[in-house]
């Protein structure tokens, strides 16, 4: 806890190689508490890899990651304990299909935080309420739509009470008519002050909800700024080209 600046997450010169393939090139990122950072960029630019490096699902090749002032790469802080503070929501939901919705949500807090069943379930019901699925506690994930699955996945991540949430294209696998319900939940979280790093192709969401937008290409952060700067007046030629293609 030695760092004095108020960054929740401070990433410096992060690089990642897969063999010869240089996927992340000295990426820097600071995230303050309560900030929503959206990462946009073309396919293969390293967005997922970057996000996965943040919670160490991928091991960075070099660089540093400080979380709340703690070096998460120095091996003193156990990776699994660090991850309990940093939730992640995946494109493919990855609910546990052999457990009912309620148990999907209570499993981690009961096991990892020793919450008793009643308490964990009470909190799970509150979370289901929050994501608009109060009546789905007792069903298996297979019976849910994609949008509902993703909202359960968000509730499951929230059950650990994380201070930071990572989203990797949470709506990219959804039918268009289901995207809205997930984005709405994410927007509410942002309004409640949740700190979020969101990889997304939803430019509307980024423009509306993000405090800061990052454009990545070829493993570099090419441009970074407020939504107004990035969408209204992009400085970099490549950002302009990308936005012209997707908007």
């Amino acid at each position: 806890m030695s760092e004095t600046d108020q960054s929740m997450l401070k990433i410096t010169e992060l690089s990642k190689y897969y063999g010869e393939n240089h996927v992340l090139k000295k990426v820097n990122l600071n995230v303050k508490k309560g900030e929503v950072v959206c990462i946009i960029g073309p396919s293969g630019s390293g967005k997922s890899t970057f996000l996965r490096c943040i919670n160490l699902l991928e091991r960075p090749s070099s660089g540093s990651i400080f979380y709340q002032g703690n070096d998460v790469l120095d091996g003193k802080w156990k990776t699994n304990e660090y991850r309990q503070h940093v939730g992640m929501v995946f494109q493919g939901y990855y609910l546990f299909p052999f457990k009912k919705v309620l148990d999907n949500i209570t499993m981690a807090p009961r096991t990892l935080k020793n919450k008793d069943k009643a308490e964990a379930e009470k909190e799970a019901f509150e979370l289901l309420e929050k994501v608009g699925l109060a009546d789905k506690d007792n069903v298996y994930p297979a019976s849910l739509s994609g949008g509902q699955k993703q909202r359960v996945a968000i509730a499951r991540a929230l059950a650990m009470n994380p201070e930071l949430l990572l989203f990797d294209e949470p709506t990219s696998a959804l039918d268009p008519e289901l995207v809205g319900e997930v984005l709405r939940v994410m927007k509410e979280l942002a309004e409640e002050g949740m700190t979020m790093v969101v990889v997304t192709h939803e430019m509307g969401f980024a423009r509306e909800v993000a405090n800061r937008v990052i454009f990545m290409e070829g493993g570099y952060i090419v441009e970074e700024g407020t939504p107004e700067e990035i969408f209204g007046n992009p400085k970099n030629e490549r950002t302009r080209e990308f936005l012209a293609r997707v908007l």
């Binding site: 699994n80 304990e81 940093v86 995946f90 609910l95 546990f96 096991t111 991540a157």
Partner: peptide, 22 residues
């Protein structure tokens, strides 16, 4: 699915817990 294992890890389970519980 590896995705399930990763979502377990991301919740803060250890490798062994992911194996045992998921």
């Amino acid at each position: 699915d590896t995705g399930q294992k990763e979502s377990g890890l991301a919740l803060g389970f250890t490798q062994l817990q992911v194996l045992r519980k998921i």
